[in-house]
Every structure is written in C-alpha cells, then in structure tokens.
Design a protein around this nucleic acid. Sequence first.
DNA 1: CTGGGGAGGGGGCCC
DNA 2: TGGGCCCCCTCCCCA
Length: 264
Amino acid sequence: MPRSFLVRKPSDPRRKPNYSELQDACVEFTFQQPYDQAHLLAAIPPPEVLNPAASLPTLIWDSLLVPQVRPVAWATLPLRESPKAVELTSLSDEDSGKSSQPPSPPSPAPSSFSSTSASSLEAEAFIAFPGLGQLPKQLARLSVAKDPQSRKIFNCKYCNKEYLSLGALKMHIRSHTLPCVCTTCGKAFSRPWLLQGHVRTHTGEKPFSCSHCNRAFADRSNLRAHLQTHSDVKRYQCQACARTFSRMSLLHKHQESGCSGGPR
DNA sequence: CTGGGGAGGGGGCCC
DNA sequence: TGGGCCCCCTCCCCA
C-alpha cells in the first residue's frame, strides 16, 4: 500500500507549535481554556494569517493546538508552496521503501532518473550502514548524480527516492536497514526513539498523561489524539454535514461511508 | 458505523 | 554530520 502521507507536505512557516503545555503534560496537563465551541472557533485565525490562497472550511482546531497543521482538505491542494516542498513532494508516491512492508525490488527508474544514473558524473559508493552488510551490495549502492541545475542528487537504491543531501539519504536508508532492534522481542526499527517507544509497550511505561482524565499514554501523539476526545468540536470537519471528528481517519471513514450531507 | 486507543512510520528542525 | 526530539500521519484493532 502506498503511504503517500509520508511524502513531505508543503512546509508551513508556522509549523512550530508551542507544545510546552503538552510537554508539561508529561507530569501534569492542564487546559488553559475551556473547551467551548465559541472559543474553539474563535481560535481560528483569519485567512490572511494563514494561506491567503486557501480557505479552511474543514479545519477546526482547539486552543491547545496552534494552527500549524493542514489536516484534511489541504491534503488535496497542490503541493507547491515552497521550493523545498516541491523538490521532495515531486517524488513518486510509489515509495515502497517507506512502507512497513519489506522493501520491494527497485522499480524501473523513470527516464530522467536513468539518464542521470548513466551520467558520467555518476559516482557510486558503498556506504557502511549498520545492518547493511547482510544485504546485497548492489542494493546498497548509492548513485550520486547531478540534475540539470548541477545540484547533487542522492538516490536510494531500494526505492529510487531522491535526496538532496547524503545525510537525508542515510536517514532514509535506515528505514530499509532497521538497525535498532528490540532486545526483548527482536523487532527492528529505523530510529532509536522508535525503539524506545516500542520498549514502552514491554515495560508499560506511560509518561504522557492527561490531567483532564488522568489517562496515561506511552506516546505523545496518542495523547494529542486523546485530547481531542475532550473537545466538543473536533479538528476535522466534514464539509458536507459540518460534523467534526477528532481524527482525519474518522472523517475519511465518515465520508467513505456516505455522508448524508445534512447538518447534524 | 463510529469513536478511540495502541503502535508505528518518515521528514524536518535543532543542537 | 549525527542524534534526539517533534510533528503529522496512518493502520489495526476493539468496544
């Protein structure tokens, strides 16, 4: 299954939310504002503060979550907001390397890619990554090519994904090599902190708690999602019936199941 | 069908 | 350059 969500969304300059409240929630989380609808809606900044070219008909957030996100409707907007975003999002969604499934054999490269691979500028390198030794070296081979603007592009031989820096490529390759292994169950992860989160499933540690209901979570993202359940007005709203949902997936399910379209 | 928890993933940013 | 952390997102499963 393609995991297009992993493709970089347009970078948002406001994407630096103040989660200090949430940070503090590790010990004690307190709501700074009551969860009433008027307040929630008032928290929506005017369009000129956001992207003037895009309306936010379906986006509702609460006062705890600074409007740095583009949850639902924006996902369908063209991804053309910043040069960096363009470069990264121009990659194919067929990014098998990011799938949780085992890496599939490298797909035929697009014409532009193959041309750069065949370029005399190409340099091949066998880069030593943890765990890479068990893999065929051909798979681990990296291509360093140059695009028409003479900018180096680093290609992943697993999935053909392109990166502008070797560091970014190395980070990506970890998702193929999975060097972080759980000593308890042997499950492998790409990042140490992913492993740490997994270890909590063994230890039962839940450092993130909601003071609203004292429920604890092992993962900050899950706490964030949980906080939505305390809100009467959720972040994701159906354009057809104005119903709000705490998660985009719930909104999608709602829409796929056939929204009646009438207000609820 | 809906709501929610659990678990996991990748890219970006900062140091 | 690499590690740590953050954010956003998804899938799976269950009530």
